[in-house]
């Protein structure tokens, strides 16, 4: 009787795990942002480990446990590497916008609100109290423009898929 129950639960588990696997794969494909996809991949590894355990139980090959441990190791390293990749890829569109807003707010706080910060000539011409900060922000802006352009290239595949 007990082995019948075990057989039933193995079948049940295989069905549920397949459904979970499918849902997670769909999330990897769709997932609106990159961290979403990475999280889904992490979850995929966890589901695969569960799969391996159930298969190992069904077939009786205990060697599968080692496979599961190795898979867990690789999955963990992959997640860590992907996290580094997110960091290396730089700010998102939203984050960049937020930073720009904050910067402009800071500028309007330090300088007089009547100053227009968008043209370089004005800032230089103006005999302001803090020429150093003004120059700094201007040079930052110049430095930033080519950077944003170069960052756009790795983003393309994400919007496509």
């Amino acid at each position: 009787m007990s082995s019948e129950f075990l057989n039933f639960s193995v079948q049940f588990a295989l069905v549920l795990l397949s459904a979970a696997f499918l849902l997670t794969v769909l999330k990897v494909i769709k997932g609106p942002t990159l961290p979403d996809r990475i999280l889904a991949l992490d979850m995929l590894v966890a589901t695969a480990i569960g799969f391996i355990a159930v298969i190992g139980l069904k077939t009786g090959y205990t060697l599968y446990v080692d496979v599961a441990i190795a898979l867990g190791l690789v999955g963990f390293l992959a997640t860590v590497a992907f996290a580094r990749f997110i960091l290396a890829r730089g700010q998102t569109e939203e984050g960049r916008e937020k930073k720009r807003l904050e910067e402009s707010q800071k500028q309007s706080e330090t300088e007089k609100p009547s100053v227009e910060p968008d043209t370089n000539s004005k800032v230089v011409e103006k005999p302001s109290k803090k020429p150093v900060t003004a120059k700094k922000t201007a040079s930052q802006k110049v430095a930033k423009t080519p950077r944003t352009r170069s960052r756009k290239t790795p983003k393309k595949p994400e919007t496509k898929s």
């Binding site: 007990s2 082995s3 129950f5 075990l6 039933f8 639960s9 549920l16 979970a20 569960g50």
Partner: peptide, 26 residues
């Protein structure tokens, strides 16, 4: 028999958790 039943219950619980985690992702 007891070990089998315990293992069966654990399998059911574990796979349900895994499935609900995947649902949670969505």
């Amino acid at each position: 028999g007891l070990a089998d039943i315990i293992a069966g219950l654990m399998i059911i619980a574990g796979s349900t958790f895994a499935f609900l985690a995947a649902v949670g992702l969505w």
